[in-house]
Amino acid sequence: MDKNLQGIQYMQEGKWEEAAKVFTEMIEATPKDPIGYINFGNLLAAMGDSDRALQFFQKAIELDENTASAYYSMGNVYYEQEQFQQATNMFEKAMKKGLESSDNYFMLGMSFIALEQPRLALPYLQRCTELNDQDGEAFFQYGLCLANEQYIDEAILQFNKTVELDPEHADAYYNLGVAYGYKENGEKALQMFNQALEVDPDHILASHGKKLLES
Results as ranks from 00 to 15, higher is better:
residue 2 D to P: 14
residue 9 Q to N: 14
residue 11 M to F: 09
residue 12 Q to Y: 09
residue 13 E to A: 13
residue 14 G to Q: 09
residue 14 G to F: 11
residue 16 W to S: 03
residue 18 E to Q: 09
residue 19 A to N: 01
residue 20 A to S: 08
residue 24 T to Q: 14
residue 25 E to W: 04
residue 26 M to Q: 14
residue 27 I to K: 09
residue 27 I to A: 10
residue 28 E to W: 14
residue 29 A to W: 10
residue 30 T to M: 13
residue 32 K to L: 14
residue 32 K to V: 13
residue 33 D to T: 10
residue 37 Y to T: 04
residue 42 N to H: 05
residue 43 L to G: 03
residue 47 M to H: 02
residue 48 G to T: 06
residue 49 D to T: 06
residue 50 S to E: 07
residue 52 R to Y: 06
residue 55 Q to S: 11
residue 56 F to T: 01
residue 57 F to A: 08
residue 59 K to N: 11
residue 59 K to R: 15
residue 61 I to R: 07
residue 61 I to K: 08
residue 63 L to I: 12
residue 64 D to E: 13
residue 64 D to H: 11
residue 64 D to I: 06
residue 65 E to M: 13
residue 65 E to C: 09
residue 71 Y to S: 10
residue 74 M to L: 07
residue 75 G to Q: 06
residue 78 Y to M: 08
residue 80 E to T: 15
residue 83 Q to R: 14
residue 85 Q to C: 05
residue 89 N to G: 03
residue 89 N to V: 06
residue 89 N to Y: 08
residue 92 E to G: 03
residue 94 A to L: 05
residue 95 M to G: 10
residue 96 K to D: 15
residue 98 G to N: 08
residue 102 S to I: 01
residue 102 S to C: 02
residue 104 N to E: 05
residue 106 F to H: 05
residue 112 F to N: 09
residue 115 L to W: 13
residue 116 E to N: 14
residue 117 Q to K: 15
residue 119 R to S: 12
residue 120 L to H: 06
residue 121 A to N: 04
residue 123 P to I: 04
residue 123 P to Y: 04
residue 125 L to K: 03
residue 126 Q to S: 09
residue 126 Q to G: 04
residue 130 E to M: 08
residue 131 L to G: 09
residue 133 D to K: 09
residue 134 Q to F: 13
residue 136 G to N: 11
residue 136 G to H: 12
residue 139 F to L: 05
residue 140 F to N: 06
residue 142 Y to C: 03
residue 145 C to S: 13
residue 147 A to D: 08
residue 151 Y to E: 11
residue 152 I to W: 02
residue 153 D to P: 00
residue 155 A to I: 01
residue 156 I to P: 00
residue 157 L to R: 07
residue 159 F to N: 02
residue 163 V to L: 07
residue 163 V to F: 11
residue 163 V to W: 09
residue 166 D to V: 10
residue 167 P to E: 15
residue 168 E to Y: 14
residue 169 H to S: 08
residue 171 D to V: 05
residue 179 A to I: 00
residue 182 Y to F: 12
residue 183 K to A: 01
residue 185 N to Q: 15
residue 186 G to I: 10
residue 187 E to R: 09
residue 187 E to V: 12
residue 188 K to V: 14
residue 191 Q to P: 01
residue 192 M to V: 05
residue 195 Q to C: 11
residue 197 L to N: 12
residue 198 E to L: 13
residue 198 E to F: 11
residue 202 D to R: 04
residue 209 G to H: 00
residue 210 K to N: 00
residue 211 K to I: 02
residue 211 K to C: 00
residue 212 L to N: 08
residue 215 S to Y: 11
residue 215 S to M: 13
